[in-house]
Design a protein around this nucleic acid. Structure first.
Lengths: 160, 160
DNA sequence: GGCAACTGTAACTATATTGGTTACAGACGA
DNA sequence: TCGTCTGTAACCAATATAGTTACAGTTGCC
């Protein structure tokens, strides 16, 4: 199964941007919140930009922000942007063609894996970045005003 | 996501055993159908035996067979036996505790991942090895009698 | 009892994927 | 034109799975 944290990190990144409220974030700032390297973030931002989830700007005063409103970005969008393959894989090498099970198990398994993928996608399609931000808020015991200030202080220059 | 074919291989193995109809299969035979090494199969059989899905016997005339009827083994049983972790993972390193998003995103993500895992498990719980065998049969254009013969010829000594 | 045929398992290598790091070209605002 | 960004290449490290060889232990059969 998943050995990858790409989905978790991508959701984190887009949540930061929703939180920052249209103010462009620098890859360095995002990296500090995620606790990783800025290049890792920039690589991911490129993928997210290709899927039209974020827009980035080069140069001084540049950075990245959401390409749409947080309620218009679902976790399924993010999943499809950063996780290429389905939940499971088939055999590494094709099974024995001369065995009646081996020759047909792939077809059956593909149907099963399709059912699984569909179930996953149904869940993810019903959660937006706005939902994530909402679920985040009860965890933060401050008023909206204070929270936004914290976001500026901590997100924009996390750790400094 | 999944870089592992363990689930696919495990389903393949148990399907072979259901097909073989209580006759113990040797790891070598299974390996030939799956198209891999017998030790890889034996390792997996150990995990499946720990989960009480198969029983193995050492020594001459030994081998492995299903521990229960095919209709009593769901794909969820297999999934839990061979895939330790959930569908997605969280961050490799914990996010920045000083960022209001970073400190709470894990909690929110865990809820999401739980929803995903539950959806996957619901799908897998509704498919048994017997179902897999049934879905396999329309792919094999022979009568039941011929099919069983083929199974003996090809499964028991696949490729020879 | 002794042999041959199995499983169980350790130890090692090969391969693939992801993540982390350095470095640098190019874009852009001031 | 300088400083601050992004985009990207190139490389290394870490991890997980798969494949391989080897061998101890178990078991049926003669």
């Amino acid at each position: 199964m998943s050995t990858s944290s790409r989905f978790a990190v991508a959701v984190h990144v887009l949540t930061l941007m929703a939180w920052a409220d249209d103010e462009p974030l620098k890859s360095e700032q995002v990296a500090e919140s995620v606790n990783t390297n800025a290049v890792v973030i920039r690589r991911m931002l490129c993928e997210l930009a290709e899927s039209k989830l974020v827009v980035s700007q080069s140069g001084a005063m540049g950075g990245s922000k959401l390409a749409r409103e947080p309620e218009q970005i679902t976790l399924l969008d993010i999943y499809q942007a950063v996780e290429s393959r389905g939940v499971f894989s088939l055999h590494r090498h094709p099974p024995n063609r001369h065995c009646p099970v081996g020759v047909n198990i792939g077809t059956v398994l593909n149907h099963v894996l399709d059912e699984v993928d569909t179930a996953v996608e149904r869940v993810l399609a019903n959660i937006t970045i706005k939902d994530v931000v909402s679920r985040l808020q009860p965890c933060v015991s401050t008023s909206v005003r204070k929270r936004k200030q914290m976001a500026k202080q901590h997100v924009m220059s996390a750790g400094n």
